[in-house]
């Protein structure tokens, strides 16, 4: 059981709580405390917007044991509108073919079952094609 590792990251995982550098204004995700852009300390908490664009994606067909029950699944690099890039699964694709440049939005989903069906359910961010809305 690695409960504390997941618990510690819950804010980042559930709702993209990252950081903003008080010195140069760069948004940081994952949070990393030292700004990679200006090298100064950056610990100001900031929740990112959660929309972005697919930079690259792939369908994983040989899954690690933790993800075997989901295989095949799509993992992508997402360029967030806030600036940072992150790694996340694409979900709710249905019959939609993902593509480089696709607009996506963050949703909170089950990432996996830790250990087995007796273990913790790990929730976290995934991205899906932006929901089409009649109004808006």
């Amino acid at each position: 059981m690695d409960i504390s590792r997941h618990w510690r990251n819950r804010k980042q995982r559930y709702r993209l709580v990252g950081e903003v550098c008080p010195h140069c204004g760069a948004k940081l995700f994952p949070p990393r405390d030292v700004c990679p852009h200006c090298g100064m300390e950056a610990k100001t908490v900031e929740t990112l917007v959660g929309t972005g664009t697919v930079y690259a994606f792939t369908t994983v067909r040989q899954a690690p044991s933790d993800f075997a029950e989901q295989s095949p699944y799509v993992v992508a690099l997402i360029s967030l509108d806030d600036g940072p890039m992150l790694t996340a699964q694409l979900t709710d694709l249905g019959d939609v073919e993902p593509y480089v440049g696709m607009r996506v939005e963050m949703v909170t989903r089950k990432l996996r079952n830790a250990d087995d069906e007796r273990g913790l359910i790990i929730y976290g961010y995934k991205f899906r094609p932006v929901l089409e809305r009649a109004l808006a």
Partner: peptide, 13 residues
């Protein structure tokens, strides 16, 4: 629901 959905994820959205 998709493989990654449950009452909690539905509630969140």
């Amino acid at each position: 629901p998709g493989l990654d959905e449950d009452t909690i994820t539905i509630s969140i959205e």
